[in-house]
Nucleic acid binder design. Structure first.
Lengths: 130, 130
DNA sequence: CAGTATCCGCCATGATACTG
DNA sequence: CAGTATCATGGCGGATACTG
């Protein structure tokens, strides 16, 4: 990875340099790389899904965090929420074109981690980082 | 992204399926996608750096979090720590080959977010996700 | 079904002080 | 310079109850 890339970003505050503490990209990056954000995006990258499907598919996520994560990603413009307006309700979530771009970068990363967990020193040794 | 990929993982508990709540990949994924982990990895992807350099380069990170993040990533086998053993101390951090693989996936993601912050719906609207 | 509202614990995070 | 130790806190995240 050439240094010039980052240095260009560093020199140009108008674009988003995540290394700057006041950069808005930090916020988006936090959404994207949040504990659940990455899994929600990866799940939706496979196919559009309904609320309940997501809830079941992403094991361990609470209703609160699913709602919160979805709203954050929707707010970022990565996720599209479509309510059927029927009763009982039916709501479908999918990736926006922007979200698709992001997911195309994110999914390989998630896959790599999943595939290479065994090669990491730990996961045992990692019980806690503190 | 083909569904079959994920489904294969789903069907094979031996590999790491991040959608499973008990999967070790969740832990590593949390390290990698942690607030500071992603920035540390991206910073080291540019070039090896000393402690102080990292501290200054990654704006806003506290000493504690830098140390903690570095130790977590070192424990995962992504980061190599080399102490010169001199006094005053000099410690260099760099990516391991495994870390390099990971960074090659991670850096494009970070760059994309940085480059596309302006296209996201918000960063203004995102003040808080709660 | 698809959420929202509320309460709450705990840990991640941060600030400060100290050290080899 | 390169950390560690300690303390304080806030907000992330979970559980539960409730609703249209």
């Amino acid at each position: 990875m050439s240094d010039s890339i980052w240095q260009a970003i560093h020199a140009e505050p108008a674009s988003g340099n995540p290394f700057s503490s006041n950069c808005p990209s930090r916020v988006v990056l936090d959404h994207v790389t949040s504990k659940w954000g990455v899994l929600v995006l990866a799940a939706l990258a496979e196919s559009p899904r309904r609320w309940g499907e997501l809830h079941r598919y992403i094991e361990g996520i609470s209703e609160k965090m699913l709602a919160q994560t979805l709203r954050a990603l929707e707010g970022d413009g990565f996720v599209l929420r479509e309510s059927a307006g029927t009763v009982p309700p039916r709501v479908d979530y999918s990736l926006t074109p922007l979200g698709r771009e992001l997911a195309d970068l994110l999914v390989p990363l998630v896959r790599w981690v999943g595939d290479n967990v065994g090669r990491t020193a730990g996961a045992e040794a990692l019980g806690r980082t503190a």
